[in-house]
Design a protein around this nucleic acid. Structure first.
Lengths: 229, 229
DNA sequence: TTGCAATTCAAACAGTTGTATGAAACTATC
DNA sequence: GATAGTTTCATACAACTGTTTGAATTGCAA
């Protein structure tokens, strides 16, 4: 494979254009123009437009998942096989939030691309996301070890809400900035991660963790449980 | 305006098809075939495809917003001008969750349409959503009355997380069902509303409610290894 | 150099899309 | 029942889409 130059140029141009203008607005002709390659090169190297998009997303998504598992593994080793629930959640939402919200100008194309993918959810990407369940189960398993005896459904809800808060923050960061007139600092990624983790921990260990409705009374101040470490 | 029959047939057919198959997959020709009307009728009655979609979304969205404000008003009147924070959040997320998750087979087309709109986020809908900020500010104002002295940014974050959990539950309900292998009951809408509200209240009144990053020391995780692919 | 496979290229293909047109059909008013 | 305004209709349009084709070009091994 001579040099991969054309292939890589297509990938780079596609990611940049999709990130900037969205999937619905970018055609193969736009991409090949940006990449300075021939139109047919896309189908030659990737087979189809959808496979190109899939490859872009898989690459970024695998990187995030690997980061997640690395952090999880490190946390569990540190705790002798059982990580604290906040460390587990940190490993879950940290990489995604840092990847998409971080002000690292270098990887910002990848970040903006992942934000797009989160917002627009085009078919080839949705197909890949559906396979993400196995990956999430590893976190459920870790949470089960960390909070033994807890009802499984509570763990699922906790993980679900953690992902909800992080993804929604990524997806709606502009609206939150506008709504709060800048009072919510979307640049302090570390603070956001801590905040999402804190609320998720409360969802899992706080009063809400009952099986039925029961919407328990408001928790008094200063009640965050930060175990481990 | 003789009878509005054609107009209404188009609206109904479009909503049903968009709900079932998504925006990207339904053409005007599909819609007019389903509605048994002529192709040109869409442009005659609505001006363009985007205006048709916008009208569909605005109708449903206004209905939800009206429900929200009614519940909010009722709660505030009940409390003599100041509603409890959980009642406020209930008014915020209740209508949306009930509308999209409720098992009311009758209005289920509208529900499935709104789920689609939440997932796919097509341009004409995004434009409308951006105007939703004014509506949300009314809830911020109510929250400010309910939790006086609290930092505004905390209110924004609390509202943001409440919307995050409800929207993400709507959007990913199938994945949550699959992940939890049915252990999370997505049909008990009332329980879901209570759960979302409970966690949101904790986020607002719990320990996390500090102004800056602060809180606790950052958990030292295994530093991530930056490799590619 | 010759031969062969991999790659690039211009061009065309086949299909779909939203929209526009102008005539026909309808409806209500006088 | 003629008229004016509204609504429907079949059809065409113009543009754009992802994909394919077959010939040119390149790179490399024998």
């Amino acid at each position: 494979m001579a040099s991969d130059h054309t292939r890589n140029a297509i990938l780079a141009a596609a990611e940049r254009l999709y990130a900037d203008r969205g999937f619905g607005d970018v055609t193969l002709r736009d991409i090949v123009a940006e990449a300075n390659v021939n139109l047919a090169a896309v189908n030659y190297h990737f087979g189809s437009k959808d496979e190109l998009i899939a490859e872009l997303f898989v690459t970024r998504s695998l990187a995030t998942n690997r980061e997640r598992l690395n952090e999880l593994k490190a946390a569990e080793e540190k705790g002798g096989g059982r990580a604290g629930i906040d460390a587990i959640l940190h490993a879950l939402v940290g990489p995604t939030l840092r990847g998409c919200l971080g002000p690292d100008r270098e990887g910002s194309t990848a970040a903006r691309f992942m934000i797009r993918a989160s917002i627009e959810s085009v078919p080839p990407i949705r197909r890949i996301k559906n396979r993400e369940v196995d990956h999430l189960r590893k976190f459920i398993a870790a949470m089960r070890r960390s909070l033994p005896g807890r009802d499984d459904s509570e763990l699922y809800w906790g993980l679900h809400f953690a992902l909800a808060m992080s993804h929604h923050t990524i997806r709606e960061k502009e609206r939150l900035t506008k709504l709060s007139e800048g009072q919510c600092d979307l640049n302090d990624v570390q603070a956001i991660v801590d905040r999402v983790v804190a609320v998720s921990v409360m969802a899992l260990t706080g009063a809400g963790a009952t099986s039925k409705a029961s919407a328990k009374p408001v928790v008094p101040h200063g009640r965050l449980t930060r175990q481990d470490l």
